[in-house]
């Protein structure tokens, strides 16, 4: 395919004395769907949070769409990176419509009218056209997460980061959110998805990255990861998550 839109070289992230990332190398090509799996505490969140600088890395380089980020740089390129959170993090004091329209108005300089038009289109796309005037607390978890996705999309990002987007949901709502993400995968946007949904990874990912102990241990197309895992840590991880 094309040039890497994200390039991480030897990225180190420490919290005090504790090293959460031990020199991670990762390249993601434009339009690629990368799924990151691994045990809890292995550094998956830290890795994607370094990409949009919610965490600042201590060493190595992160290049997003040709521009290096972090270390006090003005990271205008990061408006090209959207994020969907495990706990949705919708703004509770704004309507759903405002939640989605806010970024385009404040960051892209759209008028409220234009931004709300865009927001309505996106809410329709995630199946929430009729919920626009509600407040987040009035929606189910699955609906809230779909608003979260619409909010990220409203910035028309080149890259979308998902940090366990279905982990806080009741089981019956996981499907509706995964369906929306799967639809997005077909639009050509680059996506990095941290998830424990192995079925989703198998179906949607171009590449699966397995992390353990702050390192990328193995990365391959899903077929190979799930049918012919090489590293023993990956094998025991898969055994544990697939056994139930």
């Amino acid at each position: 395919m094309t040039r890497p839109i994200i390039e991480m070289r030897n990225v180190v992230k420490s919290f005090g004395l504790f090293k959460a990332l031990h020199g991670v190398d990762l390249q993601v090509k434009e339009g690629e769907i990368v799924v990151i799996i691994g045990p809890s505490g292995s550094g998956k969140s830290t890795l994607i949070r370094c990409i949009n600088q919610l965490e600042e890395h201590n060493g190595g380089e992160i290049i997003v769409d040709g521009a290096e980020v972090g270390h006090g740089r003005k990271n205008t390129v990061l408006t090209e990176v959207g994020m969907v959170f495990q706990n949705f993090n919708l703004f509770p004091h704004m309507t759903v419509l405002r939640n989605v329209a806010l970024g385009p108005v404040r960051v892209r300089g759209l008028s409220w009218a234009a931004a709300e038009d865009r927001a309505k289109r996106l809410l329709a796309r995630v199946g929430l056209a009729d919920q626009a005037m509600k407040y987040p607390a009035q929606l189910s978890g699955g609906q809230q997460q779909r608003v979260g996705i619409a909010r990220a999309l409203a910035m028309e990002p080149k890259v979308l980061l998902f940090d366990e987007p279905t982990s806080a949901l009741d089981p019956e709502m996981v499907g509706e959110v995964l369906d929306v993400i799967q639809q997005l995968a077909k639009t050509g946007v680059t996506m990095i998805v941290v998830t424990h949904e192995m079925g989703f990874a198998r179906k949607v990912a171009d590449r699966v990255v397995f992390m353990d102990g702050g390192r990328i241990v193995e990365q391959s197309p899903p077929d190979q990861i799930f049918n012919a895992p090489r590293d023993p840590r990956l094998r025991s991880f898969l055994q544990a998550v697939l056994s139930h």
Partner: peptide, 11 residues
Amino acid sequence: GQFEAARAIGL
């Protein structure tokens, strides 16, 4: 999470 979401959309 509110601070983070606000940063993530670029405010």
